[in-house]
Design a protein around this nucleic acid. Structure first.
Lengths: 162, 162
DNA sequence: GTCCCTATACTCGGATAGCAAGTGTCCGAGTATAGGCGG
DNA sequence: CCGCCTATACTCGGACACTTGCTATCCGAGTATAGGGAC
């Protein structure tokens, strides 16, 4: 089981957009450059985020992406589901209804017990991600990063958003 | 993000092995037949479970697989990690250290905040799966299944383990 | 009748193809801007 | 000097190859068993 790399990029991108001056936007190419990742692929994931209503797009010159909501109103789960999809990791194929011991399908009531257990685990995972917001991530990143890094980032941002 | 299908098969297989008479074993082909899945592929996952010490193998005629521990001592997490691997779903590629705002690598102390958040979620997921055992699953399956299905399964098992 | 030996058939185990989803890239559609032109 | 128009360049957006890892399968190595033969 592996989460798409795009999720990591998406969270980082949103965290950077969270500290953007109000009203301004950052194009995909700049976001990719800042994180040192391929521009075209970053753009793909930003599109997913925009489609999900997390980012809003500004077209034309001086356009780009910006957060569509306050950073504190965007959870990690929002980003994960936008990029990776909202389906649970465990997908029950109802194999209990197959094989020689199977009963008629209509006699099975409720979900398979195994499925229920995995859905509970999935919900616990989601709850944890729902409790963390992009605002938290931006703050943590600023707090944890080396001072020289924060400084360079601020300088770069001023130049990029010009 | 998607969990391997083999995990579902593995849990079902272990649940069936949990109700096996003590000392007997069930070959991969029979386990596959019972669940209506391809025999060779089921065998592959059973091998993973055996390698992880969850199942033990009995070679030769009347051989097969059986649980290596009491069903209550095998958790869903054990099965998941045996088949799907134990690595966390989110893998941090440290992109914070790349790009124009990066500081020298040695200045970064501790894990990336985003990574920490995802690891917390991962741990919550694991804790939930660690709390459920194969014994629970076998019991639940027997309780939830239609009576006719339980009956057919018992009959089939008696015949298969012969 | 009992013990031993051998051939058998059945089991697991790892090495081998096929396929789907994620990874990475490109070019076209649309638009705010900047400059030039006319009034 | 001011307002309008047009051309421009910059942006996103979806459609197109490629690679990795999961899916599915096969045949070989090893062993408990069952049957036959000797004592």
């Amino acid at each position: 089981m592996r989460l798409s790399d795009g999720v990591e990029w998406g969270v980082h991108a949103c965290s950077l957009l969270a500290v953007l001056p109000t009203g301004s936007a950052l194009p995909a190419a700049k976001l990719a450059e800042f994180h040192g990742v391929p521009s075209a692929y970053m753009a793909k994931h930003l599109q997913s985020l925009a489609r999900a209503g997390i980012l809003e797009t500004v077209k034309g010159p001086r356009g780009g992406y910006r957060l569509a909501r306050p950073p504190a109103a965007v959870t990690l789960l929002d980003v994960v589901e936008a990029i990776d999809g909202a389906e649970p990791a465990f997908r029950c194929s109802e194999i209990r209804r197959r094989g020689p011991a199977a009963a008629p399908a209509r006699e099975y009531r409720g979900l398979c017990g195994i499925n229920r257990a995995f859905l509970r685990a999935d919900e616990a995972w989601r709850a944890e991600l729902r409790a963390v917001t992009i605002a938290d991530m931006a703050l943590t990143a600023a707090r944890d990063a080396p001072p020289s890094g924060v400084d360079k980032a601020a300088r770069w941002l001023r130049e990029a958003v010009r």
